[in-house]
């Protein structure tokens, strides 16, 4: 292990990543895209008994431009799919997507002409929370997994290498 690797710049960026990741994971502004049954469990998670606020994700923003986690809660039908895509496109980077409930993961037992077989056919997904609907504990577990993912992501290199792939609008 040479001293060269511990250059000042490298150390600062890794530390910065950690700090930003730590800060980001506890200030999740979620956009609940609620369509169906899972919304009931979403309400239960958000309210007093299970209290999602303990994990720093207590404040839903109902505007895609102000939120960084898109929670897709409930079945997505073919009629709904273009709207979901549009909402996702309107969100600013960095953004994450949580598939809440088995309908969003795979389509669940709605294998039919009207239902999208998993939202990952439309938009990228970071965390899948299975269950029909998932129990609040499962949701919180999924949220913690997302927080780990957020904390582990490198922020600085992406900024440093400003080759900008997503900005060519």
């Amino acid at each position: 292990m040479g001293l060269g690797n511990l250059s000042i710049g490298g150390m600062i960026t890794t530390r910065l990543d950690k700090a930003i990741g730590w800060a980001q994971k506890f200030s999740i502004f979620q956009y609940p895209f609620i369509t169906a049954c899972c919304g009931m469990e979403y309400m239960a998670v958000a309210c007093s008994h299970y209290d999602i606020d303990r994990f720093g994700a207590g404040l839903p923003r109902f505007s895609p431009r102000q939120s960084d986690v898109l929670m897709v809660v409930g079945t997505i039908s073919h009629k709904q799919a273009p709207i979901l895509k549009k909402i996702y496109d309107q969100m600013c980077e960095p953004k994450w997507v949580v598939a809440f409930g088995v309908c969003t993961c795979t389509g669940g037992f709605y294998d039919n002409y009207a239902t999208v077989q998993g939202i990952d056919t439309i938009i990228p997904v970071d965390v899948y929370i299975p269950g029909c609907p998932p129990r609040p504990e499962t949701v919180l577990d999924g949220l913690i997994k997302l927080q780990k993912k957020i904390a582990g992501e490198a922020v600085a290199p992406a900024n440093a290498g400003a080759t900008s792939t997503s900005m060519d609008v």
Partner: peptide, 28 residues
């Protein structure tokens, strides 16, 4: 119509028992 997920069609596809889980998700 944004949550149309073919409940009535599914009932015809399965047996009488198999329709029960779908009925849960009518008024959830």
């Amino acid at each position: 119509g944004y949550l149309h997920r073919a409940f009535e069609k599914h009932c015809e596809e399965g047996t009488y028992f198999q329709a029960i889980p779908y009925t849960d998700r009518l008024n959830y």
